[in-house]
Write a protein that binds this DNA or RNA. Structure first.
Lengths: 203, 203
DNA sequence: TATACTTTTGACCATTCGGTTAAACCCATT
DNA sequence: AATGGGTTTAACCGAATGGTCAAAAGTATA
């Protein structure tokens, strides 16, 4: 049945997502994915021909999910300051719910950069910066920020939000020894990061 | 001979470093390492008993090398602003020369957090923050920055420096489409990041 | 119920991989 | 030249892995 099909394929896809995110492409085992899905290993190959095709499907879904999280920054009609606060609040919340995604994506992209190239090709970045600059022209000019600086600012914001999760294994070790909890730290970070960036821009 | 020993062991270690950094623990093959070192595979097991022991040796060396790069921030006698400029200039330069190290370290730590725990145990972080705060008490109090905020600031600085390299595969794709070069971008970033942080602190 | 199609399975295969072993090799000492 | 130590190698091994296949099970249609 088509309804049942969907269920099996979905079960496989979900199991594959879990295992790939936890172990990476190289570390994941088809048998392990089959066990997680509660089905026979041969079924994996019936629905997704090879390990690489199954991985590609999972990878693309995750990459799209992550990039989508950046979208509100470009089309919301908040003013600059509100937009920055919105970004850190929403983005860090998303990563709190999906803490392993950054490490997974960054590693697999480094391991095989070609995989993400085609996804990036669908995006017109020149236009995005232009659009963003026009949206906040008044504020940016007041702070004396040129359009060329936008990529530096955006990467800095992404870095402040994503890096603690990508480096969680290290950061958690550091915080532990100071009696601090990672999640509380990230909770504080939502406002700290926003204030930090806003102050930096105002100079 | 001891001189020759050193040479063989070093050859193996260097080859292992290259291969592990490029492919990761799971992706690396002992045969591949042997080929890189120009020796027989059995020799790997003669000098380092298992793949895991060889990897641990490589991992520890790289981790120490990276952490050592943060040391000047804590003991140099520059004033706060100069120290921030010094950090970004030196740290980004180091990563430009070793662009794959961040991705390697972050991934392997996420894959097996226990591996780095013992290295972190040698460090008294409470004392480090205290020391840092005392060093720049005057400036920090003037800017109304408490000691509790230091970890947020330090992680932000690490993020701004490290993240672009960890996310290089993505960032390079974005920059390419704007006609920008990754290395030029990182060259600019040395001063941008310093200015950015200094402005944020001054508020 | 008989037929034809899709879905699921257990058994199997070829290859790869980390690791072992016994013999060869090298070299200093006697 | 013979001995004995560490070093290096080719050949090999067992286990694990991605993938295949033919048969079984399930299901819709007539």
């Amino acid at each position: 049945m088509s309804e049942n099909d969907k269920l099996t394929e979905e079960k496989i896809f979900d199991a594959a997502t879990d295992v790939f995110v936890e172990k990476g492409l190289d570390g994941a085992r088809m048998q392990d994915i089959a066990d997680h899905a509660g089905i026979n290993k041969a079924l994996l190959h019936y629905y997704f021909r090879t390990k690489d095709k199954l991985f590609s499907a999972v990878f693309e879904m995750i990459a799209k999910k992550i990039f989508k999280k950046f979208a509100p920054v470009f089309d919301d009609d908040l003013n600059l300051e509100a937009k920055i606060r919105f970004f850190f609040r929403e983005h860090i919340s998303f990563l709190q719910a999906n803490p392993r995604l950054p490490g997974f994506l960054l590693n697999e992209v480094n391991r095989n950069p070609a995989r993400i190239k085609k996804l990036l090709n669908n995006i017109d970045f020149n236009n995005i910066w232009l659009q963003l600059y026009e949206q906040h022209k008044n504020e940016l000019q007041k702070y004396n920020i040129s359009q060329e600086t936008l990529p530096q600012i955006m990467i800095s914001m992404a870095a402040m939000s994503v890096f603690p999760f990508a480096a969680r294994g290290i950061l958690e070790g550091v915080l532990d020894k100071m009696g601090l909890d990672f999640n509380e730290y990230m909770e504080e970070r939502k406002t700290f990061a926003a204030d930090f960036v806003i102050n930096a821009l105002k100079k």
